[in-house]
Amino acid sequence: MSRDDPFAGGVAPRLRRLDRDLAEAIVDAQCRDWTADRPDRVGFARLGQVRREVGRAAARYRVSPRAVDRTAAPAVLLAGLLVVAPLLWLAPDPGRPLPLAAIAVAGLWAADLFRAGLRRLRIRRARHAPDRAAPIDDPFRYARARRTIESCAAAARADRSYRRRGAAADLEYALDWLSAAQEELPRVR
């Protein structure tokens, strides 16, 4: 298999999407292990190894993971509408340096506050939400991850840059860990 879909974008966005998928599956499996809903401390640890190797490959492509969740944009919007715009409207001569700096700082803190509030709201809503199936048990997810990793490794091997060719080796490790996570090798005891 050389590449899954030549129109799916370059290697970097595919790696970023894969990283997000893996993170979701890992956190979900870890929660289920903590709450004894699906006790298994090995599967998510191995998926974590996959994610580490994928992250190392992504670092060779200079992909930085985005630390923005779903609450960031509404929080910024709310802070802009409810705090920054009224302050700009009401303050006398807000174009001077000090008032503008104060307004910017107020907007920043308000965005943080709104973000914390929105997160608390989301947690409260999730308390009674129906549960879904664990993504770590989904075989199609493993197949998709394997396909993505293989195609990215093929693309990395054919890359002109020496640094990016090194990503192929990391992705090979990631494939090993992925199959270890899926197949759950037998152990002592």
């Binding site: 979900d28 809903d37 998510f44 974590g48 308390r127």
Partner: peptide, 28 residues
Amino acid sequence: WRPPAMRRVIAADPVLARLAEADLLLCQ
């Protein structure tokens, strides 16, 4: 303590996120 809420708490609380990260590394 149910998984849907737990996921969001781990995402929202930095202390808990660190505990989860340490737990992941320990399991590895």
